[in-house]
Design a binder for these strands. Structure first.
Length: 469
RNA sequence: GGUCGGAUGGCCGAGAGGCGAGGCUCAGGACUGCAAAUCCUGCUACACGGGUUCAAAUCCCGUUCCGACCUCCA
């Protein structure tokens, strides 16, 4: 079943129409978070991609089935210099916080869901946890061993034989022979792997005591890549119409996943590999060492609507690197407030032009269906905002329709203001009276005083208005 | 070294060979007692060198510079 939605496929390097192979529902898999810390705004950009696609499909009357995994085991870490620490990220954080690793996982999983809710992301159909799908992985690994795509190394770990999969490198453009030198890493031949590019499907526990499971190859834990193969094959019935993830996952994660899935299934499992570009913050890549990691809670703490972040993301194409700044977030926040205010004024004014509404929606959806060109769709909205020939009711209706996809809560009225203290109320009233008496020296003084107390006053033809700063 | 992207005005960013996107900032104006908000006006750019074309930001060739990934990452 065709959808009319075209998205750039990393493997074919061209736009491809999204299709529901099973004829009734688009099957989507999105690589989820490793829950050893809070997701930063860069992570959230990728997660928004899944929401944007699902909303677009659902808007067009097409069902979507989105699965997003929760990695709570097996993701190995490194230190900031890029040296392998060789420790599971979950266990490292568990030590750092002196908390059980599973409690760490649940804690950050909860904050992941809280962030998604704040960004108005429609929840996925299922968020399977790696730690709860071990049997699926064991079965997959067994199959890969049976078909000679995997082998047990001398160290008791199970490895995938990279050379056994013919199309290795098609997504990233990397070739196995070109990878050999290991530009950044000295390849250490420990003898366990048969080939330097092979990777672990199952790691032997050795000294590890937490987060380990029994397996036909002894106690241990799964490699990171196998989890996505196992889950996507199982939860999406062996067919993935769209596979989403950050650009950095293109290699090696998705390359390895594809090798595993295709080798097990015997056919091309993923129809379309979609990658979201990275986000910079104030011109630099976000990293702990650079100290510029920004969380959604930081945005909220600055008094900005979390949906300001959503608007910033929508104003940039998912496939281009974008530089997020506090200025752009503030600008987005202002825009949101303006739109919400205007919507309230528009909705009951004038006649609704059904024809215009239908044309407008069709045009905007066409932009979005063209490789998710939300910047262009938003530009249409800005143009409409300024168009004096269109009635308020029609503008409001257009905003309503488009907000089903943008998810910016444009229909929301002003948030109720927090209660004034009697002192502040008195100051405001004093100023009102001073203005009535045309004692402007006094009213200006009171305005300054209120400003230092966190209240912004402005005068309109209807009188004095105030807002918390 | 390999692979993949970029280079557009003060800043950020769209651009479909030919009537200059848009946003932010800034400056001037309107409205205000003054501010604020709002509205109006202004600020004309495509890295460099060739080529194709009646016409190039857009297509082709070359050059320079920048970024991402290369067995960590969204």
């Amino acid at each position: 079943m065709n959808t009319g939605l075209f998205i750039f496929d990393t493997k074919e390097r061209e736009l491809k129409e999204v299709c529901a192979k099973n004829g009734f529902e688009v099957q989507i898999y999105c690589c989820g978070p490793t829950v050893y810390r809070d997701a930063h705004v860069g992570n959230l950009r990728t997660f928004l991609l899944g929401d944007l696609i699902t909303r677009t499909l659902v808007f067009s009357g097409i069902a979507a089935n989105l699965i997003q995994n929760i990695t709570d085991v097996g993701h190995m870490g490194e230190d900031f210099d890029g040296n392998e620490v060789g420790e599971d990220k979950m266990l490292a954080q568990s030590k750092a916080e002196s908390v059980d690793p599973f409690d760490i996982a649940r804690k950050y999983e909860a904050s992941f869901h809280r962030d998604l809710a704040n960004l108005n992301v429609t929840p996925a159909a299922n968020y399977p946890r790696a730690s709860e799908t071990i049997p699926l992985m064991l079965e997959l690994i067994s199959n890969l061993i049976k078909s000679d795509h995997a082998y047990v190394g001398s160290d008791g770990c199970v490895y995938f034989a990279a050379n056994s999969f013919e199309g290795y490198g098609d997504i990233s453009g990397n070739r196995l022979d070109a990878l050999k030198p290991g530009h950044r890493y000295e390849y250490v031949d420990d003898g366990a792997k048969r080939f330097h590019a092979d990777w672990a499907l199952w790691k032997a526990a050795e000294n590890r005591t937490q987060m380990i499971w029994d397996s036909p190859w002894g106690p241990g834990f799964p490699g990171w890549h196998i989890e996505c193969s196992a889950m996507s094959l199982h939860f999406l019935d062996g067919n993935v119409d769209l596979h989403l993830g950050g650009i950095d996952l293109r290699f090696p994660h998705h390359e390895n996943e594809r090798a595993q899935s295709n080798s097990a299934a015997g056919y091309e499992v993923v129809e379309n590999w979609v990658h979201g570009e990275h986000l910079l913050f104030e011109g630099r890549k976000m990293s702990k060492s650079a100290g510029n990691v920004v969380l959604l809670t930081d945005v909220i703490a600055k008094g900005l609507d979390p949906l300001s972040l959503r608007l910033c993301f929508l104003e940039n194409r998912y496939r281009s690197q974008m530089d997020l700044t506090w200025d752009s977030l503030k600008a987005a926040n202002t825009t949101l407030e303006r739109w919400r205010g205007k919507y309230q004024n528009w909705k009951d004014s004038g006649d609704l032009d059904q024809k215009f509404l239908a044309d407008f929606a069709e045009g905007s959806i066409a932009d979005i269906k063209n490789d998710l060109d939300t910047p262009r769709a938003l530009q249409q909205l800005r143009k409409l905002e300024k168009d004096e020939l269109i009635s308020g009711a029609t503008k409001a209706a257009c905003f309503e329709v488009m907000d089903q996809i943008f998810g910016l809560e444009l229909l929301k009225g002003q948030a109720p203001k927090a209660e004034l203290t009697p002192e502040l109320a008195q100051l405001l009233d004093d100023r009102r009276v001073a203005r009535l008496e045309k004692d402007f020296a006094k009213s200006d003084l009171l305005r300054d005083q209120l400003a230092t107390l966190g209240i912004l006053v402005k005068d309109t033809p209807a009188g004095q208005e105030w807002n918390w700063n």
